[in-house]
Amino acid sequence: MTIHKRHELKTIVITSFGANGSAMVASLRDDHRFSVMSHFQSLGEAYSPTEETPPDIAICTQSITAAAEFPMYQALIELLGVRLVTVPDQIDAAGIARLLGMKAAEPRKPAPPETRTTGLDPQKIIAIGSSTGGIEALKQVLSRFPSNCPATVIVQHIRPEFLDGVVSRLDGICPAKVIAADHRMDLEPGLVQFAPGLPQHLEVDPKLRRTRLRAGPPVSGHQPSVDVLFQSLIPIASDVIGVLLTGMGRDGATGLGALRRAGAWTIAQDAETSTIYGMPRVADQEGAVCDVVPLNHIAAAAMRAAKRQRETLR
């Protein structure tokens, strides 16, 4: 199979456990020539995702090729017409690119400038829900976040295979750090955690202030669901800024209303700037919203809520 010139190669990576594999995947995600669709640490985990959404290339470390199930995975790769690349356990994206015969990477665009906002309450948490049109909306919102923004958690309705690329792009434009959330990750200022591309709900443990991934049926038609995220934050609502962006349907409207009644400050995108004025419209009609804001003002509104006393906002 010939690797054609293109902006990004859709990539699945299968590595053994350990820091070397994590470092390799991190370097691939930082290289704009690759789009890491998924990273697995066993061939068994990788088999079904590879078959369901074939990548351009599958990268396997040499230690993985020694596994008994490797010939079966190799047969699948050949059947799908996917290029299999076997690499040393210790290698980075530049080394993999050389194995593929790719030219040296062009310099990446400069990172977003370091911006900080004074007076932010370190206990505040921003929770954002979005759906149709949400990726572009999140780009505008997160690009205006300061590097020391309140801990932020996001549920965006998205197909799982697009997750890594979206998180990478958002991280590239947001002064804060944007990552895919995992189970039991601490909420920290300057860290934006995105619901992973899994059939699981993203919640916040209100006592430990950590993310929590939970299996369960769809709620409001979605898994993960914005309503589930918002509902999990009700015990600490006074520290929460809930934000509902563009999207079809009503996911998030019920949870946003519950948050507001419990003491949270709530914000919804306005009709004029929404791609689909569904979720924020329902929330506003049901009295769930403290403030209806144009898209380009949402980041500033959230930061004001994170630094002022609630009495000055209402």
Score class of each variant (00 low, 15 high):
146 P>Q: 03
54 P>S: 05
252 G>H: 11
39 H>C: 05
163 L>W: 00
57 I>S: 06
65 T>E: 11
41 Q>A: 00
138 L>S: 06
112 P>G: 11
95 G>I: 08
158 I>W: 01
291 D>T: 00
283 A>E: 10
224 P>G: 08
274 S>C: 15
207 K>Y: 05
116 R>P: 00
30 D>G: 10
136 E>D: 14
59 I>G: 08
273 T>A: 01
32 H>S: 13
268 A>E: 03
97 A>V: 08
142 L>V: 10
243 V>G: 03
196 P>T: 02
94 A>F: 05
262 A>T: 01
17 F>E: 13
76 L>F: 12
215 A>Q: 14
85 V>D: 09
209 R>H: 06
129 G>V: 13
180 A>P: 02
282 V>Q: 09
213 L>H: 09
154 I>E: 06
212 R>D: 06
240 V>R: 01
168 S>H: 00
297 H>M: 13
121 D>W: 07
125 I>Q: 09
267 I>F: 08
200 Q>G: 00
199 P>G: 03
78 E>P: 00
298 I>K: 04
45 E>M: 10
100 L>C: 07
85 V>K: 08
205 D>P: 01
247 G>W: 01
128 I>V: 14
90 Q>M: 13
92 D>N: 15
107 P>E: 12
257 G>N: 07
241 I>K: 07
161 E>G: 00
148 N>F: 10
190 G>R: 10
39 H>G: 02
284 D>M: 11
309 Q>F: 01
280 P>W: 04
32 H>P: 12
68 A>N: 12
229 L>E: 04
65 T>I: 15
7 H>V: 05
212 R>Y: 07
38 S>N: 12
12 I>P: 02
243 V>A: 11
68 A>R: 14
110 P>T: 10
279 M>Q: 07
31 D>I: 01
44 G>W: 04
246 T>K: 08
114 E>C: 05
294 P>L: 02
295 L>T: 05
164 D>E: 13
15 T>R: 10
220 S>R: 12
243 V>S: 03
73 Y>I: 13
168 S>N: 13
18 G>M: 01
167 V>R: 04
154 I>S: 11
64 I>C: 07
75 A>G: 13
150 P>M: 01
204 V>M: 03
242 G>P: 08
294 P>E: 08
136 E>A: 15
266 T>E: 09
101 G>T: 04
